[in-house]
């Protein structure tokens, strides 16, 4: 990418940004603009509101009452209970699987891309340019194009139908590496590393005790994006796993949804709806709690393009 502005210009505003505009430049509030944006917000919220309302309905009400109107009875708690206990509590199993894939997969991906991004940003070693070219090229490769060959390879290695089939591919995030690289260039001053070296600290100790602290906002950002992509992962587990007790939530939910069709159809719409709601909530909570981080990290990533 070409640099449209120099880092010196961009750096200071990247992190602290709110309230920087002087009042002279601050125009009055526009009702028209706010109104138009409210319309867009309504569009954004309709499916989610529908989901919340529908999770309070029994299956009969779901099929017979209007989508955005309440049902005849408030069945949220019985729906949740039924979702969690249906088929010996397989939903909880899927939930635990998802947590495992997310913690190990996204956690590992963050660790690997943080170390690698830092290494690329702060050391001038031979082959650095080659790494850059290969990883940037990898961003352009659609992961799903790799999925089928990866499946065949893993199948030969006996890895399909194991948790490793999901965890190992999740460990690599070229985009995370790119983000950390850009972030580390600016967040860790070279002088600080030199000072630590003069004090006699080894390179790994410097990384763990000095640099990692400075990289923290970028690390949280990469972790959040890795978290979303592993939590939402569907294609990979769909092809890698055929045992329902290894499924993550996404694949499990579609399986429940598919029960409504075909021979021997046994629809469980209320469980699909409630299960979907339970799948969304944790991620939304995490995003709300960690807003500060993903927003500042993203700014740093957008500085250099």
């Amino acid at each position: 990418m070409t640099a449209t502005m120099s880092p010196e210009q961009a750096q200071p505003v990247a992190v602290e940004s709110t309230g920087r505009r002087s009042s002279a430049l601050r125009p009055g509030k526009s009702r028209v603009l706010t109104g138009v944006m409210v319309l867009y917000v309504i569009y954004t919220l309709i499916p989610l509101v529908w989901l919340v309302i529908s999770a309070t309905k029994t299956q009969t009400d779901l099929l017979s009452t209007a989508g955005l109107a309440p049902g005849h009875s408030f069945a949220l708690f019985s729906n949740i209970k039924e979702t969690l206990t249906y088929r010996d509590g397989i939903f909880l199993r899927w939930f635990a699987n998802t947590l495992l894939y997310v913690v190990v997969g996204a956690g590992g991906a963050t660790l690997l891309s943080t170390a690698a991004g830092y290494g690329l940003a702060k050391y001038r070693f031979p082959g650095r340019r080659a790494v850059f070219a290969v990883v940037l090229g990898a961003i352009a490769i659609p992961p799903t194009a790799l999925a089928v060959p990866t499946f065949l390879m893993f199948s030969n290695m006996g890895l399909t139908n194991t948790v490793w089939a999901i965890i190992v591919p999740s460990l690599v995030s070229p985009f995370g590496l790119y983000l950390m690289w850009v972030y580390a260039e600016e967040a860790v001053p070279q002088e600080l590393l030199e000072a630590a070296r003069i004090d006699g600290a080894g390179e790994f100790r410097i990384f763990w005790t000095v640099s990692l602290r400075l990289l923290a906002p970028g690390v949280v950002t990469v972790l959040l994006f890795a978290l979303v992509s592993t939590w939402n992962n569907y294609f990979l587990p769909l092809i890698m796993l055929s045992k329902p007790n290894l499924y993550p939530l996404t694949v499990g939910l579609t399986q429940w949804s598919n029960q409504a069709h075909g021979a021997g159809a046994h629809p469980v719409y209320n469980l699909v709806v409630t299960g979907s709601l339970l799948t969304i909530v944790p991620l939304i909570v995490v995003f709300f709690l960690l807003q500060r981080f993903w927003q500042s990290g993203l700014s740093a990533g957008s500085v250099k393009q």
Partner: peptide, 12 residues
């Protein structure tokens, strides 16, 4: 020291 950079990048 610069070659130490590889050890950060190698696991990835």
């Amino acid at each position: 020291r610069d070659l130490r950079g590889w050890s950060f990048v190698a696991p990835f």
